[in-house]
Design a protein around this nucleic acid. Structure first.
Lengths: 209, 209
DNA sequence: TTATTATAGCTATTTTTTTCACAAAATGTT
DNA sequence: AACATTTTGTGAAAAAAATAGCTATAATAA
């Protein structure tokens, strides 16, 4: 059970496993084997066991895993056993879709603030959150104890917003803008570029088929 | 210059490089080195050269790469030198954000049809596209020559919609639902799970820091 | 009790991906 | 023309990740 440096691919798969286990639990399934998880999530059973082995022994030989037990372990490993306060900066198409997206709340990500610069957008409601002016960034981050910032502003504003968030104490940034951001080493950064996904498809369609 | 089996990570980086080159071109930069690209996109220069090497020799030793030339090569490699017709199934928060997202059109992905089942949503406009009833799926795919399908429906409906798309001739599926989809081997499938991204952040915040 | 079967956990192997480091080529300089 | 400088392209080495297969253990059946 070495614990240093967990591959990111493993973390992503754990997230997928946990969602699958949640589904099984709702269906009333009580135990599950690595092979079942593999089948349900599209990986190999050896991979499932390997991924879990980074964190301990959760199963019983000859039997499998208890669904809720394993689920709870994964939730804990993923840090989802608490609430994270999230700010979304940018309430354009993407920002507002993210603000309204149910999936986040379900997993403990509480969107507490949404900011924008556009006077037409400020004051509108996204669910029960009102879009506020960008100037309030520092104030809201501090008073609401926000740890995660989502960047949904145009590329040109992304770095500046990021700097302000980091300076005010945000610990992790999820960047939806197509811009490489600089953050201090201790801040967790993750980039999501929606076009990249379509372009990988396009590549696969265009290339060697 | 072996050409079989390009790593997916390479393809994703090519997409990022191409966007960076586009930016440079707009700024009037004419030549660029692998080191510059590396710095601008957050990878190593050796990585840049290795990635490009899968597809040929595009640079000049001692000099670097001509920005537009390399850009055009990448666009061609990524299959972005043509238009792809795209259908979005599901016009909820996510589906409509995707339909309205500018980034896709800019790269040659033309969203030609958006479908939903909800009578309250059908008939509404997303930009200049009207949301139509799901029943029209087969008809629209055929008459509009659609090759790429985006799944933005709830998990419970995802497989059925996918089957219908595939049956009607769609060649690639971008799946935003948290469900493992089955498609024939010749269909390109890519999953984007937005929650996974936040959960990777959460893991990194919770674990070893 | 003793086999038999199923399956986790672990170790070894293979494969894939990244990094390193250097020869080759182009340009600029003395 | 010779030399220095820059930077690509690439083979080799290293690192990382995935896969395969073996061993131990629990449950169950004989």
């Amino acid at each position: 059970m070495k614990v240093f440096k967990i591959p990111e691919a493993t973390v992503m798969r754990l997230s997928v496993y946990s969602r699958y286990l949640n589904q099984l639990a709702r269906e009333g399934v009580e135990t599950v084997s690595s092979g079942d998880i593999a089948k349900g999530t599209g990986v190999s059973s050896a991979q499932v066991r390997k991924d879990l082995a980074y964190f301990g022994e959760f199963g019983t030989r000859g039997v499998g895993y208890k669904v809720d037990e394993l689920y709870n372990h994964l939730i804990k490993i993923l840090g989802l056993d608490r609430e994270w306060n999230v700010i979304i900066v940018g309430a354009g198409k993407l920002g507002s879709a993210l603000a309204l997206y149910q999936g986040f709340a379900e997993r403990g990500f509480k969107i507490v603030t949404v900011l924008d610069v556009d006077p037409d957008i400020i004051g509108t409601k996204l669910g029960n959150i009102e879009v506020e002016p960008l100037e309030l960034l520092e104030e809201r981050v501090r008073e609401q104890n926000i740890t995660i910032g989502v960047i949904a502003v145009p590329a040109s504003a992304a770095q500046e917003v990021t700097d302000r968030l980091v300076k005010t104490g945000v610990k992790a940034i999820l960047n939806f803008s197509p811009r490489v951001l600089k953050v201090p080493r201790e801040v967790v950064l993750r980039n999501v570029d929606l076009s990249v996904n379509l372009e990988v498809l396009s590549f696969n369609l265009a290339f060697n088929r």
